[in-house]
């Protein structure tokens, strides 16, 4: 199995689909040159510049162009350079991409993949560091995936492109250069399913994207204290794999959700609501969230470091949940 960086794995999935299906096109700012991080590097050279379309800085219209192309039988992949700028494309994504299949009574389909990168990395401040994925949970008709590792990045990219619905593929900039083995030809369907990365019996820690790493580190550290943590990588936020979470909670009776997005209205809230609906009586303590403080992302290193949840914060949450007992 080749070892690839997360960034190379995204390209690997994308390129595999583009080679396989001539209707897959890439649209975005600077994409013909590889984009700012090099994800689309070399694709235009291999498959032709007509398949990798550089666009002006017109996010809203470019999203609309891709939706229109999808309605006409192409399978476009749009790159929004930073998720912060998806605000400019919200109308097209929310009012057209998400709704046209439904509003048309099934006459139309929007097989669209939207690549966005998110998260805190490199002191870029509040307009280049946000995690906005939870907004899209509130829009029926959109799917949302967030790979945490190269193998999932490769597989989820393939799944997203093959899906007949608009899929938001959320990359974390801080993961781009992390490396791991990626099975050739993909590792099978990853969409719709959470992954249990570490089996445990005392606490379930469900994490998203880059927060999977501190969750695993915390589990490792806690094992030395004799605490057994089950780590679940959510991978897909819409649809959410509630079954895997409920099965885990039935075993551990305690749940902590970890994400880099701010706490209020985040994925953790949805996970907590859905899990308690099915597993409240299995729980021994309240479901906790480890998330960013309810603030815009700051720029200065000490502030930014404090903003992002880390291993210590996960460990503290595990101690807190274990100390909490039913009255």
């Amino acid at each position: 199995m080749p070892e690839l960086s997360y960034l190379e794995a995204i390209r690997s999935g994308l390129l595999a689909e583009m080679r396989d299906d001539p209707s897959v096109y890439v649209f975005g700012e600077d994409v013909a040159l590889g984009g700012p991080f090099g994800v689309t590097q070399g694709i235009a050279e291999e498959l032709g510049s007509h398949r990798v379309v550089n666009t002006p800085i017109s996010e809203g219209t470019v999203m609309g162009v891709a939706i229109g192309a999808a309605l006409s039988g192409l399978r476009p992949v749009v790159e929004i350079m930073f998720v912060d700028f998806i605000t400019l494309a919200m109308d097209q994504l929310v009012n057209h991409a998400a709704k046209l299949h439904y509003m048309s009574g099934g006459q139309l389909r929007v097989p669209l993949t939207v690549r966005v990168q998110c998260g805190v990395q490199g002191n870029m401040g509040a307009h280049h560091s946000q995690s906005l994925e939870s907004w899209f949970l509130h829009v029926p008709g959109l799917k949302v995936v967030m790979p945490s590792n190269p193998a999932d990045a490769d597989s989820l990219m393939r799944d997203a492109i093959r899906d007949d619905n608009p899929v938001l593929f959320v990359e974390h900039r801080g993961l781009y250069f992390t490396r791991a083995e990626v099975p050739e030809g993909g590792s099978g369907r990853a969409m719709d399913r959470a992954a249990v990365l570490r089996s445990g019996t005392d606490v379930t820690v469900a994490a998203v994207s880059r927060m999977v790493a501190p969750a695993r580190e915390a589990a490792e550290a806690l094992a030395a204290e004799g605490i057994s943590v089950e780590v679940v990588d959510l991978r897909s936020l819409v649809p959410l794999d509630v079954e895997t979470l409920v099965n885990s909670v039935r075993k551990t009776s305690r749940l902590i959700v970890v994400h880099e997005a701010v706490e209020q209205g985040g994925v953790g809230a949805e996970v907590a609501a859905r899990v308690q609906e099915q597993a409240l009586y299995y729980l021994d303590s309240p479901i906790l969230r480890v998330a960013a403080p309810n603030a815009p992302v700051p720029c200065a290193p000490p502030l930014e470091n404090f903003f992002v949840p880390d291993k210590e914060r996960v460990v503290a949450a595990v101690h807190r949940t274990l100390a909490s007992q039913p009255a």
Binding site: G68, A70, L71, S72, L74, Q92
Partner: peptide, 9 residues
């Protein structure tokens, strides 16, 4: 913008 996409395709 949608019509542009149709024209592109």
């Amino acid at each position: 913008p949608l019509a542009l996409g149709a024209a592109f395709a």
